[in-house]
Design a protein around this nucleic acid. Structure first.
Lengths: 160, 160
DNA sequence: AAATTACGTCAATAGCGCTGACATATTTTT
DNA sequence: AAAAATATGTCAGCGCTATTGACGTAATTT
């Protein structure tokens, strides 16, 4: 029985076989989601660096445009972050003139959030390359296929 | 013509209409992707805090398990990050005994990366809740539907 | 012998998330 | 009316992940 070199001894404890089919785990979709999302956010990221903003700003500006009048609490619920995390980003967007706050008409403790025209323009500019990418991914797809993809993505969400 | 209060004047510059149908942009899928990915990564995140690791560790341990023997350069290409970003994370995984390096047999400058058994176990534990979530999202879906979703996700990637 | 490549590392910085604590209005409850 | 709860803001500190730039070493290629 030949003695192992130290390199062989180390190798003996290593796994050289690719992880696949283990425990019926869907590694393929896991990776597809990673790559898809990685590239999906890379488009707006490139635009954002020019204005000195980041992904967090993108999300805020997006949702406020989608639902003008939403409150800070609504936004926290949507983004699933803490108010301290939101604070800095929101303040910068307000100071830069992309978003404005209005005291709630019924409950004056609330701060209802609205985009300015600049905020709307920014949200659209950020969404455009993402939408083009989605269109490309759906190239030639039927309505049924689009519906299936939407159903899948909805199913990926945690039910609240 | 009534004078506006300062509040009304401010409101006049704001947009109260939800952003939708603007420029044929697919806001719905954009949001579905955001929510799907947000919840998709939340599963492993919860596991990772226990071991003191983060998402970056997850990615590294995942891909090294999927393709044992991959080099540092391969990993950088896959993750699309800089080597300085990878360095700390990889070092921690090596120091903790989840991954080992072996000098390349042909090119000895290379560092081929392999998981240990602990590394394999960790990768599987992290993939498991994600895979369950995917299965749930595909509940009742046909093979054709699964194929459509994969095709869509592949189409979302930037072609290299 | 010189240039290139693969990898590692030091230093500084930015973005974005967190916890904990405390303050201020405003609304609701008692 | 007083007390409690709610919506929001803010200060302070910290951790993770990413960045750029610079430099070093070993190994390979030219």
């Amino acid at each position: 029985m030949p003695r192992q070199t130290s390199q062989n001894a180390a190798k003996a404890e290593l796994l050289a076989t690719p992880m696949q089919n283990a425990g019926n785990i869907d590694f393929e979709i896991i990776e597809l989601l990673f790559f898809a999302y990685r590239d999906f956010v890379s488009d707006p990221d490139q635009i954002l660096v020019k204005s000195g903003f980041g992904r967090a700003h993108h999300r805020v500006v997006h949702f406020v445009n989608r639902e003008p009048g939403m409150t800070v609490a609504d936004l926290l619920e949507t983004l699933q972050i803490t108010k301290q995390s939101l604070a800095r980003v929101l303040k910068q967007l307000i100071d830069s003139g992309y978003i404005r706050q209005v005291a709630g008409p019924e409950d004056r403790r609330q701060r209802k959030l609205y985009p300015t025209q600049a905020g709307r323009d920014l949200a659209l500019a950020l969404a455009e390359p993402q939408s083009r990418r989605i269109e490309r991914a759906f190239e030639g797809a039927s309505e049924a296929t689009r519906a299936s993809v939407k159903r899948f993505l909805r199913g990926m969400q945690t039910e609240k």
